[in-house]
């Protein structure tokens, strides 16, 4: 039986989070990959508010009006802006992942081009949502 290497045995060795920026050069593919996981976590947290939204409607007018007032406050609108972009980014980058799963676009130039398409498409879709809401 071999002993597990203890995590602190080579403490001077730089580990993943501390590598970022200092030793690790960012590229579009890795930044978008971090972004996919971060927006996914934000969206999972957002499902709490989504459930609260429909439940407040089921509870009646007063509860729904209170929820709407919070959503329309500056903090609420800021969170909605963040969630709308997170959702549309995660959606666009998710489609990119599905394309990879189908076996396409693995060449580096296509990976990079797809990444930039995702960035631009997510921003345009977010703008379209907010235009639809206010125009």
């Amino acid at each position: 039986m071999t002993a597990k290497p203890s995590p602190g045995s080579n403490a001077s060795r730089p580990l993943s989070p501390f590598m970022l920026g200092q030793y690790y050069r960012f590229q579009i593919s890795s930044v978008l990959s971090f972004g996919h996981r971060l927006t996914g976590m934000a969206l999972s947290f957002g499902t709490l508010f989504l459930a609260a939204w429909v439940m407040s409607a089921a509870a009646g007018q007063d509860a729904f009006d209170q929820f709407s007032a919070c959503a329309r406050s500056p903090v609420g609108l800021f969170l909605l802006l963040g969630w709308s972009w997170s959702l549309l980014y995660h959606l666009c980058n998710g489609v990119r992942h599905l394309v990879w799963d189908a076996g396409y676009a693995f060449e580096k130039k296509n990976v990079d081009a797809g990444g930039w398409i995702v960035v631009v498409a997510s921003l345009l879709l977010t703008a379209a949502v907010w235009v639809a809401a206010y125009v």
Binding site: A57, D65, S68, R72, L91, G94, A128, W130, A132, A133
Partner: peptide, 21 residues
């Protein structure tokens, strides 16, 4: 499944401005 459903949901809520009961 979430690709069309999410787009429908986000644009519906925005379009109908669902802020009143």
């Amino acid at each position: 499944a979430l690709v069309p459903l999410s787009l429908w949901f986000v644009f519906s809520v925005a379009h109908y401005r669902i802020a009143d009961y």
